[in-house]
Design a protein around this nucleic acid. Structure first.
Lengths: 344, 344
DNA sequence: GCGGCGGATTGAAATGTTTCAAGAACGGGA
DNA sequence: TCCCGTTCTTGAAACATTTCAATCCGCCGC
């Protein structure tokens, strides 16, 4: 008739065990954890000693269940492999860790289905907010989530009319800068290695490029050849060269981001085409390594750390949901960084 | 005496609401969600219709509370800004998303305190496992967590005697490769721009370098000058040049990673020191952009995607905890990539 | 000696699931 | 008609917290 201890299959400790050990009620243990100012000194010490002695670790799921919301926010990017995103990430992490929030990283891999799947899981987790660069151009599902009480901030994508908060860099302006730069160097046949036009950033940069061409009194249809890449990777950038009429073709290649430009430079070198002499090349994003490529890459800089931080800031205020449906949009301006790959 | 509906302050839906709407019990709703094969056809359809009609989303915290563990794993890196980690991440994400696990990204920023803080939170969240590159060299706290039932895999760090699973690249061997390469080119004064020696990878690479020097019949103390950087960033790499006696000093710089080498190349270019003519430079990791720097950077390649995938694999088996305290260590071999920055 | 007060503690309800023993409905065979 | 087996469904317990009204206790003032 003795108690049978089963150390083999031992249950995780709960506040009940702590309470028993310290000789108080669970309510008191909870108070020690969350509102220690309500608890008398000796009791406080005793309970804390029990917590330490037993090695008790409170259960976040139970807390969240009670609270109705979790302490992690979702960050959904289109591709973790893209250095642009990984340079935005530190800005986000910094801000979130200050608020003791966990960062749940999701990569949609540019698939609308995978994005939808992750969003569903995040909603199940009752995250207070999501930071997202949407995979597709339709964002009505995000508006709907927002309406259901999940803070939502678009990252690197204008919110437009959608009533969603957004942090973005002006991609049309960036495209204009790039176009104006290439035109000023005398280029009249420009190939634009773009991503799928359903991706907003890609469409905007193209629009800016066209604007620049028109502003110079020229016809975009004649000046610009667009090549659409299935994915924005170095490999695809290199492969795209095959599809270019290099002789009698364009004299300048504008890549929709630096990752693509990386592959393009590699491919041109292998083919013995000299940059910038035989072909001017420029990228977009100005990621960390752009300035150090061979040749150094002309690019359009986006303020990535700021972008991440601003996005997290906005999400925090949106998730608190204080001010109702008020929404806000922060647009940073890009900056042209002229380097060797387009120098005359 | 009419019901008063309060649409203003509406509670989140639960399975109770779905059950009421469909005219069944909550148990049945649960079965529809988790074991639909137990539920009769018409009931199944009716409940599913109710779920859709009401827009019900199950609560992950409640599930987890019941289950005793969550569906997210922690990934702790020392610095998200480091491209090495961001190139390992896709391998991890791929594997985790296959298992429908969420990736919680934590960056210790090389601080033991921040690491401890994050570990505590992850334990509270009842994650089944953690993938970690530890900030300090003492890993007894990780062994302890493992003992308490949290799967634990060391990333890019040998588990040594610790009984922990580990996935690593042989850093000593990598250091040897780098050293042998520089020595074979005739360099006899080598500066090693290293991180703090409490970081295991840094210490191992140094050890390999020394091995190579000794293997050539030389004295490490005479050949190698070590410069310790406070952080492994381009900025610090560039700054370290100030501390080097460039004239009559080393003829080769071995940087502990490519990020540092990036800054070094930038700094040397600004100072008009030609690479590899006046100074040979090599890095470590062989990140995506290394081959395309100006000049292209000699580096020691680590199989990063594989590393991430293998780590996630190991974590999944460890977290299931099937096989007791059995542990395993996977060591990949590095590969020397000789490029222009050290070419004779 | 008693009413009341304020600080400390308690006990129970509520949060949203899953699981499981038990019950209901139904049909078939004796 | 009764019994039994199968198939579906139910209701309640359990998970680990937080919160809050209620209680307890000592003490002060009258």
């Amino acid at each position: 008739m003795t108690d049978i201890h089963k150390p083999a299959e031992r249950r995780r400790l709960s506040m009940v065990d702590v309470a028993a050990h310290a000789g108080v009620s669970v309510g008191t243990v909870s108070n020690v954890l969350n509102r220690p100012e309500l608890v008398a000194g000796p009791t406080l010490r005793r309970v804390r000693a029990s917590i330490k002695a037993l090695g008790f670790v409170p259960s976040a799921p139970a807390r969240q269940l009670r609270a109705g919301s979790s302490r992690s926010v979702g960050v959904m990017v289109r591709d973790i492999g893209n250095p642009f995103f990984t340079e935005v990430l530190p800005g986000i992490e910094t801000r979130l860790s200050q608020e003791e929030l966990l960062l749940v990283l999701c990569s949609s891999s540019d698939s609308v289905e995978k994005e939808a799947y992750y969003l569903q899981i995040l909603e199940q987790h009752r995250v207070p907010g999501i930071l997202i660069t949407p995979a597709g151009q339709d964002i009505s599902h995000l508006v709907e989530l927002r309406r259901r009480g999940i803070g939502m901030v678009l990252l690197d994508r204008p919110g437009a009319d959608s009533q969603l908060c957004a942090v973005a860099v002006d991609n049309v302006r960036g495209g204009e800068m790039a176009g104006a730069h290439l035109l000023s160097l005398g280029h009249r046949r420009i190939a634009f290695l773009n991503g799928p036009s359903i991706v907003r950033q890609c469409a905007d940069r193209r629009k800016g490029l066209d604007n620049a061409v028109r502003a110079a009194g020229l016809d975009p249809d004649e000046v610009v050849t667009e090549i659409t890449l299935p994915a924005l990777t170095p490999r695809e950038g290199e492969a795209a060269l095959e599809r270019l009429p290099l002789r009698e073709g364009p004299t300048a290649l504008f890549c929709v981001n630096d990752t693509v430009a990386l592959g393009v430079l590699r491919g041109l070198e292998q083919r013995g085409i000299s940059v910038p002499h035989d072909m001017a090349v420029m990228g977009y994003d100005d990621v960390e390594f752009a300035a150090l490529l061979s040749p150094s890459l002309t690019s359009v800089r986006q303020p990535k750390h700021q972008l991440g931080q601003a996005a997290a800031d906005l999400l925090l205020t949106d998730a608190r949901g204080d001010s109702g449906h008020w929404h806000q949009e922060i647009v940073f301006q890009p900056e042209l960084m002229v380097r060797a790959s387009t120098r005359a």
